[in-house]
């Protein structure tokens, strides 16, 4: 067993209204960043876990996302490659 660190990005499901992202986008435009097209605000979660190898750690974290970390109705998730912790 080795210890791995995996970063998870959770974002609002594409196509669903993202009022928080819209509010940040509008604020950026107010600041003069007129080229801003779209902003989405999500969550960044770091999981440290023991696993036999990196692949197993990634599979485990994917399972965590499906069961708890992300809501399958409203959110999408992406996990980064596992790195030794």
């Amino acid at each position: 067993m080795a210890k791995f660190r995996i970063a998870v990005h959770i974002t609002p499901r594409k196509g669903l209204l993202d009022p928080q992202g819209n509010a940040v986008r509008d604020a950026l435009r107010t600041l003069g960043f007129n080229a801003v097209k779209d902003v989405h605000v999500g969550r960044y979660i770091i999981v440290e876990t023991d696993a036999y190898d990196a692949l197993t750690a990634e599979d485990t974290v994917t399972d965590m996302c499906a069961k708890l970390l992300a809501n399958p109705v409203t959110e999408d998730f992406d996990i980064e490659s596992a790195v030794p912790a």
Binding site: L16, L17, P19, Q20, A23, N71, V73, T74
Partner: peptide
């Protein structure tokens, strides 16, 4: 109840935040 799957769908942040 929605999170537990007893009901379909989800409750998200109010549209006006």
């Amino acid at each position: 109840a929605c999170e537990a799957g007893l009901l379909p769908g989800a409750l998200m942040r109010n549209s006006h935040l």
